[in-house]
């Protein structure tokens, strides 16, 4: 929407957004702040938000964890899962949107149903399966597992998106000699760029913060940050909010940066749509 808003509307809109942001950010900010607190200040009563800041918790996590390797693990798993899901899911979503066959819609619902199966059923069989094909403990195991869920998600996102693109445009392109794939790649895909970016962003976040699958399928050397986050919190008798907060910095900041970059593309898609 490109029309101008009147000043009071703009103020109202901005205030509402700011209130929403405070609600969404404050709890995470609290966790981040605990990183700078000594633990006796974190759980004190009455709880007070001021304290003498220190960096001891960062020293501890830098000492206890191989942060570079953990970040690499998270990056590989997220990037791999996202790429694989997009690669599989976008063409599939396109096919589902364009097919006139009943089988297409059945396939779409099967994808959705598979997302709904609780991990309790699949975890142990999948674990044994990965062992059989010698992928247990590797990043591939997590990527393949994530991609089963995310492919279904991407396929549905793109199915929904491609249905908003009128088929006439593509038909014209096919007549012009584009071919089926050309019509998809050069005509339809650019029109749904926003949905591609949104899917990518969400796939990445699912993979980035997923805990149960990587906890089971990786080894100490291939572990991602999400699993280390819980290790940083500690065991039943040794919980440590400070190190959890410090670790949360490492695990949140990179993904926010990526989201900032990807968001620019979300906007680029819009401008194209307007013209």
């Amino acid at each position: 929407m490109s029309r101008r808003l009147s000043r009071p509307t703009l103020v109202a809109q901005r205030s509402a957004v700011i209130i929403a942001l405070v609600v969404f950010l404050a709890p995470v900010l609290w966790l981040a702040l605990t990183a700078y607190e000594p633990s006796r200040a974190i759980q004190s009563t009455p709880p007070l938000p001021w304290f003498v800041p220190g960096l001891a918790n960062f020293v501890i996590i830098a000492q206890q964890f191989d942060l570079a390797k953990l970040t690499l693990g998270s990056a590989v798993i997220s990037a791999g899962s996202t790429l694989l899901s997009l690669l599989l899911g976008i063409p599939c979503g396109y096919a589902l949107a364009r097919a006139r066959h009943r089988g297409a819609i059945i396939l779409a619902y099967v994808f959705l149903a598979i997302r709904g199966v609780p991990t309790v059923v699949t975890l142990i069989p999948f674990y044994l399966f990965m062992r059989q094909i010698h992928l247990l403990g590797t990043w591939w195991a997590v990527i393949l597992m994530n991609a089963t869920l995310s492919t279904a998600f991407v396929a549905w996102m793109m199915y929904t998106a491609f249905r908003t693109v009128p088929t006439e445009i593509e038909d014209a392109a096919i007549v012009d000699g584009c071919g089926g794939f050309g019509a998809f790649w050069r005509v339809a895909l650019p029109l749904v760029r926003t949905s591609v970016v949104a899917s990518a962003l969400l796939c990445m976040m699912f993979a980035w913060n997923d805990y149960l699958n990587p906890a089971f399928l990786t080894r100490a050397e291939t572990r991602p940050l999400s699993v280390a986050l819980l290790t940083a919190f500690g065991g039943p008798t040794t919980s440590s909010w400070g190190t959890l907060g410090a670790m949360a910095h490492i695990s949140t900041i990179p993904i926010i940066l990526v989201a900032l970059v990807l968001n620019r593309f979300l906007v680029a898609g819009l401008i194209r749509g307007v013209h």
Binding site: L21, F24, L25, P27, V28, M205, N209, A248, T252, I256
Partner: peptide
């Protein structure tokens, strides 16, 4: 972008 922060937390 900032709104997405909650989704990034495990």
């Amino acid at each position: 972008t900032l709104m997405l922060v909650p989704i990034t937390v495990t």
